[in-house]
Design a protein around this nucleic acid. Structure first.
Ligand SMILES: [Mn+2]
Ligand SMILES: [Mn+2]
Ligand SMILES: [Zn+2]
Ligand SMILES: [Zn+2]
Lengths: 136, 136
DNA sequence: GAGGTTATCGCAACTGCCCGCAATAGTGGC
DNA sequence: GCCACTATTGCGGGCAGTTGCGATAACCTC
């Protein structure tokens, strides 16, 4: 089933704007921002409003085609849901970013499930702290 | 040594605005927002600008008197640094918030230190996911 | 293919927060 | 106390989103 069919089956519509956001996400680098996507679309279709890009990223996220993560700034990072999940370590001093395997985070997820019945999404927010160099 | 002396020793100044932010933090509930602090100050001193409150929260944080955490919205939560550190579980569906002991998070912090030399601050961002009721 | 329903759009205004700048006011030295 | 120095302030404007609203256009039915 195509994305368009999936959407229609859920009472949503496949608009040109939606298609452009999906295309931009395929072209974009690993962790892209809404602003980047908006800019790349508006280069060819300047009439498309940034708020439409934001709303469509959220709509595609609800359908499970897209996810987002937060590093240590105020910018949300978007990626296709079919890319490999992973965690992030972000240094609050030098700003360095390191990707880590989900297996490192799994024991905590398991414990939160067992002790609190909480199904944690530990890839959603980066782990903030001090990297090896800055911790000294 | 008082906060004022500590500040002066570091070349900073104890302004009335700074004092008002500290007082408001003492009066405020556990996890307060800059907007709440600003509003409570401006009730008596309407000439004090919100940006001054933001800047002073950051200044007090650099000195170690204040910290902040992020739950699942775009609002930063501030608290005095002398309050007991703890983690948060936030349900992205129903919005419920649960506080958890740092001891639950410590094994992960230890592992990140050992394997990546990274000194993680696991209280900084809430763990997002689905609570017992919403996970089903 | 035309028509009616309504999801989605563009736009304008708003949010929490951040920043440059000129004016103000704490500060240490006298 | 007064002065000179400069950290900090109020203000205006910017950034990353979010939201309400009336206009548009995708969809389903015929
Ligand atoms: Mn933060
Ligand atoms: Mn999020
Ligand atoms: Zn990554
Ligand atoms: Zn819940």
């Amino acid at each position: 089933m195509t994305v368009a069919d999936d959407m229609r089956a859920k009472g949503m519509r496949m608009t040109v704007q939606r298609r452009l956001v999906l295309d931009a996400l395929r072209r974009a680098r690993h962790h892209t921002t809404a602003e980047e996507i908006s800019r790349s679309i508006r280069a060819s279709y300047p009439q498309i409003d940034p708020s439409t890009v934001y709303r469509n990223l959220e709509a595609l996220e609800r359908l499970g085609y897209v996810t987002h993560t937060h590093l240590d700034d105020r910018v949300t990072r978007w990626r296709r849901a079919d890319s490999r999940p992973h965690g992030h370590l972000v240094c609050r001093k030098c700003g360095s970013e390191e990707e880590i395997a989900m297996s490192v985070l799994e024991p905590l997820a398991k414990r939160l499930k067992g002790e609190h019945g909480f199904r944690a999404d530990l890839a959603h927010s980066a782990v903030v702290g001090l990297c090896r160099e800055c911790a000294g």
